[in-house]
Every structure is written in C-alpha cells, then in structure tokens.
Design a protein around this nucleic acid. Structure first.
Lengths: 212, 212
DNA sequence: AGGAATACCTACCAATGGTAAGTTTTATCC
DNA sequence: GGATAAAACTTACCATTGGTAGGTATTCCT
C-alpha cells in the first residue's frame, strides 16, 4: 500500500510534502485529471468510465488506478485540483470573498462538466467513508468562514446591513451558488450570475427598515 | 389521485390511461417504493442496490424490475410519488406557494434519505436520456411558475418589493432550498428552515430604497 | 552501474444492472 | 367453473465496471 499521499486529504493547513514521484508520473497524473474532466463534460458523471479516461491518456484502468485509489477518489481530486488552481475556495483575506464567489459563479457558467462533477461529488461525499468527505466538509467550512468575514468587512464599511448574521449570509450565498448551478444544469439559458448578484444585493441590503 | 400511473411520466397535461394491473401488483409496487426510500435513507443513494431493495420486499432483482424500467427509474418514481403525495410541487393557486416551500424545507429537515435521493436524481436527470429528465424539468418549471405567481400576489398585497422580478425571485427561492439541503446533508445541525426564512425575508423586502 | 521506488500491464474477480424466457398466479369471460 | 389472457413473478444468464494481485519495465538517484 504505497499510498502515504494518495487518498488522504491535505487541507489548506496541511504542510505535508507530496510523495515523491517521477516527472513522467507527475505529468501523467495531471493528464489524467484533465482527461477525466473532459470525459465528464462529454458524457456526464455517471457515464464516465475508468476505461474511457484510461483510453484518453493511453493507459489501462489499472494504470489510472495506480495514481488514484478509486474512481471516486479521482473525481474528487479533479475538484480539489481545480479548486486549488483557480483559488475560488479559500480566498485569502485580501480580496472580497463575496465578489470572488460571484465571479466563480459567472465563470462556472462556461464549464458544465465541472459544475456537474462538483455537484455530484458534493452529494456523494455525504457518506463519511467517501474519499472526499473531509475535503467537502473542510471546503464548506473554509468558504463559510471566508464569506462571513467578507460580510463583516462590508458591515464595517456600511455596505451590508449591520444586523445581518454574517455566518447565515455566508450560508445563503453558498446555497444560492450551489442551487443556481443545479437549476442551470437543467436549463443553461439561466443567467446564474445575474440572478446570484440580484439575490445577494437584496440580501446584503444596507437600507434602513421601512418606516412602518 | 394519480397514484396508479407507472413507468412513463405523465405530466399535468397528459391524459393517458393507466396500465391495468392487479391489486396484488399495485400493493407490491407501493411496497417497493417505500422500501427503496428506506434503503436509501440507511445506506445512501449510491450504496442502495436493487438486490437489497428486492430482499426488503421479498422479491428478486428481476421481480423489482418488473415494476420499474431500471434502478434509475425506480428512484425517480420514489421522488415522483412523494412529490405527488405531499403536494409540495405543483402548488395550486389557493395557498401561498412561498410559505408552502418554506414548510417543505422545514419538513425535509427530518428526512435525510429523501433529501439525498432528491438531490441525486436532480443531478442525474440532467442527462436528456435519463428517465426523470422530463419530470425534473417540468417540476422546476411548475415550481418557478407557482412561486412567481406567489411573488406577484405578494407584490399586489404590498408584502413584496414592487420592483422585484417574480421569476428571478422564484429561482432564488428554489436555489436556496436546494442549496441549503446540499449543505445540510453535510452538516445536519444547520437550521435550514431558519436560514431559508431569513433569506427570503430579506429578498422579498418591501422597504423603499435607502435615501442615498 | 546498481538498486530502490515508480510506472504500468496482464490477468482476474465480484458486484451490479439488466435481459430472455419460462412458470405460476390473478382476474375475467363465456 | 373451467378456459384464457394478462400480470406477477422466478431462474438462469450476460455485459460492464470498479477494483485487486502480482509481475515486468522504467526512471532516477548515488
């Protein structure tokens, strides 16, 4: 069981060194991740077979499974890689996390394969034994924290209702993002980004209560 | 009710006659639907096998497949039946559809199995060849229409911002419902209903814009 | 060059969804 | 109250797929 690295999740706070691999292997690994996403985009998540992914990169099933513990693990890693790459998730304290989330929503409107994969992994990972369980959990946690902080900053700046519960608003923003993506999968004419911005504007409303 | 329908989806506009079947079969069919939901609740969607469902009702796999075209079809029918039963979906014009949706969200907080099944089917059904594709599409459509009408009624009553786009608000409500359920699956301590109500209150806000 | 770790393949297995074809049960019609 | 047609099943059986075991070839470091 070689896998000191494979399968085990390394969160943002983890500093473990990656398992040493040969250059060729590292390249192949990346290639697999890219191919997997492409295959999902073409045939959908549940119709994406290990065999087809393997074919796409000139390997056998077993060859692919040399890099990933399982199909589920592979799919989860696609997400993780993507997540780390375009840094949508763990937004550092500098940028505005709410704006960043909005941008991510907008961007996702161009990658249906990724959206489907994301939704699918999130649901599957509900099972505690799923390889991405901890990942998704941590991701949600980090997102909530980051967004809540963004809300607090806006409250200080006066661009968000002072009585809003930052954590609740964070959860609302995430729910909107996830939920709109679900709808969008069934109707890609939906303007996810527009609806998201509209909703968030209303939620963050800094206007004083109506004189009742 | 339309409980005697099977296999093929009959939307609101369909008038086809139900396939005739014996009383015993009808009972068995119900039993299977209930058992399927129970199995999903226990082991999760992807770990719910036809075999186990069959065992639960004293049949073989093939026996179950006599009633449903496929596993996916079975799962979709569980949703459909449930949908028709507690009438959450096609809310008639009488009640307030927004309140109704809120109640459904609250109720779903007690049935994790159903929530998981629902989410899973919605994602799977993105594929046009999925047996529940048309169902989910129609369901979304009907929900949007119903909720949008609810928003309009509130606007007339002065309990919703007059400038709100009813359809957009409808989509927002659905997204919140779906998205919160996704989060809730990973953290059942989340107060779905509370967050949902909070968000909708903010979105529907009828307060006048702040004097900028 | 030597040697350890990696990269990768060839079988092989078990589980699962699904089908084909037949047998038994159920209700209906003379 | 049997004949009969349809529904309610069952017993094989198949194909796909994820995954494993174990071996061979390749890479890289010293």
């Amino acid at each position: 069981m070689v896998s000191f690295i494979r399968g085990c999740y390394r969160g943002p706070m983890s500093t473990e060194v990656p398992a040493r691999r040969y250059a060729k292997g590292e390249a192949k690994r990346r290639q697999i991740l890219i191919a997997a996403l492409a295959v999902v985009a073409r045939h959908g998540y549940r119709n994406s077979t290990l065999q087809e992914i393997a074919d796409a990169v000139g390997l056998t099933k077993a060859g692919v499974l040399h890099y990933f513990d399982s199909r589920e693990d592979l799919m989860a890693q696609v997400l993780r890689e993507r997540d780390a790459h375009d840094g949508t998730a763990y937004t550092p304290a500098d940028g505005d996390s709410l704006t960043q989330l909005g941008r991510t929503v907008e961007h996702n409107g161009s990658v249906p394969g990724l959206v489907q994969l994301y939704s699918q992994v999130v649901i599957e990972a509900e099972a505690p034994e799923h390889p991405a369980h901890a990942f998704v959990r941590d991701r949600y946690g980090a997102l909530v924290a980051s967004l809540a902080e963004g809300v607090r900053r806006r409250q200080r700046a006066g661009t968000a209702g002072p009585d809003l519960d930052p954590v609740a608003v964070a959860r609302i923003a995430i729910a909107l993002s996830d939920g709109l993506q679900l709808q969008w999968l069934h109707d890609q004419s939906l303007d996810m980004s527009g609806v998201f911005d509209t909703a968030m504007d209303l939620v963050l409303e800094a206007r004083p209560p109506r004189a009742s």
